[in-house]
Amino acid sequence: MTSPLLAASGLRFRYPGAARPAVDEVDLSVPEGALVGVIGPNGSGKSTLVRLLLGALEPDRGEIRLLGRRLSSWRRRELARRVGVVPQNESVTFPVSVREFVAMGRYPHLGPWRTEGPEDRDAVERALARCDVEDLAGRAFATLSGGERQLARVARALAQEPDLLALDEPTVSLDVRHEMEIYELLRELVAGGTTVLLVTHNLNAAARYADRLLLLHGGRARAEGTPAEVLTRETVEEVYGWPVRVVPHPGPGPDEGAPQVVALAGGDGGHAPSEGERDR
């Protein structure tokens, strides 16, 4: 087996003034060509972990290697040619067209005074086509719907032509169709050789699309493995504190049989209902 594209071991990070570390003794390995999902409840350290992995935060302890090289030794621009990111919070202050927005993905490939060449323009057009937003290229980014914006953000990250694509909650507040479009796009990208790191609240989508999952709880890794290994009823109930059932996806589709978490109604949030209660 080849060495993983991105590997972290013993990561710990505490925000200044915080009582406990936001991320504590976490190991993670992202193999080349895989889709790895990071899941966990609110405040479990998902976003902090991803910020550490992307070099936006410095870990207090532990080591991160990208392509075998220590992350801290990468220059920002070098890193941005290898790792594309779709961040969670962004706002556009001034009017900018979708094409201009996606073309920002080429900046890491340009020097401060060099203008875009044909290969840069090709990369932008390919990214627009890949995300099916060519028709929107002339529109102002601000006028797009939430789903279209998210596709444009993914297109910008693809214009970077990255080896690793990282997405932080890419489908929050999207409708079913746009959500599925994003996940299907990720599946296609992985099939084409891109490695994807996905942070999400959506357990079921993660279970359907990820090769491996890391479940965080209180800053620590609670479970790691294939979706079927991680998403068991026992683990999910313990981590989320809510009664659930885990059922196989009914299909049809390539992900038929993937574990799907169904939260039960009528629970009190603290305990799973007993077998007898469920059977009534």
């Binding site: 070098e78 790792v83 961040p87 706002s91 920002m104 005074w113």
Partner: peptide, 22 residues
Amino acid sequence: GLARSLNLLAVGEETALFLGTR
């Protein structure tokens, strides 16, 4: 010379970081 960085900063500091800006 910092025009591209300003384009990115106008979108967001994290975005600018992830697109190679110090």
